[in-house]
Amino acid sequence: MQPARVRAVRLHGRSAVALALVSGLGLLAFSWPLFVQPGSGLAHRADAPWLFVVLLPLLLAVVLAEIGDGGMDAKAVALLGVLAAVGAALRPLGGGVAGFEPVFFLLVLAGRVLGRGFGFVLGSVTLFASALLTAGVGPWLPFQMLAAGWVGFFAGCLPRAAGWREVTMLSAYGGVAGLLYGLLLNLWLWPYAIGLDTGLSFVAGDPLTENLPRFVAFTLSTSLGFDIPRALLTAALVAVTARPVLLALRRTARRAVFDAQPRFEASRPS
């Protein structure tokens, strides 16, 4: 049986444009070391990475306000809050095991069932709530929020499928998304972690073919040992939990009747 598509958080014209613009800017905020040219405004300042740290919270606020304005009803807000609480509770569980992030399976499954707009907001809200609960507010937070938002967004964009095909697709997506999330956060960490003057640091103006191997070498020497097991664990977790969790989420989405549109009309004098 193919369940109908649910859009718990509607992306209307304005918020979709804002989301696209902010995502583009966000991608730039992650990957600028790969593209920056010598002599440009960013290349010769040691505190250039901090520019995006200031910029990104602002952009996130703008896009979340745009999505929230008229796109979210009480049901979406309540479900967002509750699922974010579940996600925030799952997050410390991963702290003990090397690089294991159990929050992804919830993001993937909820994004799948409740749509891409909901997935994006859930990703950012979950990471934000968990940072507040664990005193983890810092310059990394807006980047984590944006990347987790993308994980939820693209889970809502996956093509239609049902049965074991759906479970396989979601599990594969969970693994890939977990890996890409790790790589993106690594890309963000790159200038901070090792500074600007080691052999593995980016060199402004070098072509992509030379900066990318440096980044790969940095990733190999730091975190790939965590990222690959994490991706595999996420994929396994999605595969195991997909069926019951999808059922529970779909049941709630059906009960909440997200797409119902009440219409108010001025009473006509009779």
């Binding site: 606020a61 979340l64 306000a65 999505i67 929230g68 304005d69 979210m72 807000v77 309540a78 967002l80 809050g81 509750v82 974010a84 609480a85 925030a88 509770a89 907001v121 809200v125 979950t126 934000f128 709530a129 507040l132 609960l133």
Partner: peptide, 15 residues
């Protein structure tokens, strides 16, 4: 940011 703020408040009080 009212809607998103309420969602975060719900998350914090629900955990």
């Amino acid at each position: 940011l009212y809607e998103v703020g309420v969602a975060v408040v719900v998350a914090l009080s629900f955990s």
